[in-house]
């Protein structure tokens, strides 16, 4: 469970608050996709949930540890460590004074389940992999970290379409199977429609659309795009009016 109650956030030097009283409550295992224009407050909301930023007011209640995958792959992995070391580091919740190589079979199985042949690099430093492959490993690490909350910030943006599809399918299936509460920011409207139990749209620091259940299932890319442009146009008009006023 994750609850964000009336969260506001401002940054010095920026007149308008980045978040203006955001409320969001996710049930255990719920998968929520977040869309919105650049600067709408999506990443700030995620950083407040992860604890990286402190809210000016409001409250965030988390039912467990938070794992995160961000666009910058170097933040989510250690390139100089081997793939085994990276995944073992994330997967071990109760460390012991015994060799981490005992996890090798488990780790190989997890990587093999991706079906992209990365298991042959298990004892190689992650730096030998491409950025996209490293992002896949970063996602696998976050999902298998035992955290009950997963935050994904455009985690497929650096990948080619084939890899994007593969990673999204892996992410959606894994979080459903493990019952991880997930918030995923994306600019890909197709992913926003296709994946997740719930969709929210942010605009100017507020949640302006929140849909789930049948409403979300019936959503099409076309209708989502129309909604997106409608809110963008409204905010442009409002800004223009405010400026004129």
């Amino acid at each position: 469970m994750l609850r964000i109650s009336n969260v506001t956030k401002s940054f010095s030097g920026i007149f308008e608050p980045v978040l203006k009283g955001v409320n969001l409550s996710l049930a255990e295992g719920e998968f929520c996709t977040v869309i919105g224009a650049n600067g709408s407050g999506k990443t700030t909301m995620l950083r407040i949930v992860s604890g990286e930023h402190q809210a000016d007011s409001g409250e965030v209640i988390r039912n467990g540890d938070v794992a995160q995958v961000v666009q910058d792959v170097n933040k989510g992995t250690i390139p100089s460590m081997t793939m085994l070391e990276n995944i073992a580091l994330s997967g071990v919740k109760n460390p012991r004074f015994s060799f981490y190589r005992r996890h090798k079979n488990d780790v190989v199985e997890k990587v093999r389940s991706l079906n992209i042949g990365l298991e042959k690099f298990i004892d190689q430093p992650l730096s030998v992999l491409s950025g996209g492959q490293r992002q896949i490993i970063a996602t696998l690490m976050a999902i298998n970290s035992g955290s009950r909350i997963l935050l994904l910030d455009e985690h497929t943006s650096a990948l080619d379409p084939k890899m994007q599809l593969l990673l999204m399918e892996y992410t959606a299936n894994s979080v459903r199977e493990l019952g991880i509460t997930t918030i995923m920011i994306t600019h890909n409207m197709e992913d926003a429609v296709k994946y997740g139990d719930r969709l929210i749209m942010m605009n100017k620091g507020r949640i302006v659309v929140d849909m789930s259940g049948r409403e979300k299932k019936q959503l099409t890319i076309q209708s989502l795009l129309e909604m997106f442009h409608k809110f963008e146009d409204q905010s442009l008009l409002r800004d223009g009016g405010e400026n004129v006023g």
């Binding site: 938070v66 250690i78 012991r96």
Partner: peptide, 23 residues
Amino acid sequence: FLRTDFGLRFRAVGLNQNLAKQR
């Protein structure tokens, strides 16, 4: 020690402090 679970964590502290904190 460096080849144990704790050793892995020890190495992670210097290599990626943010990731270490997250874990």
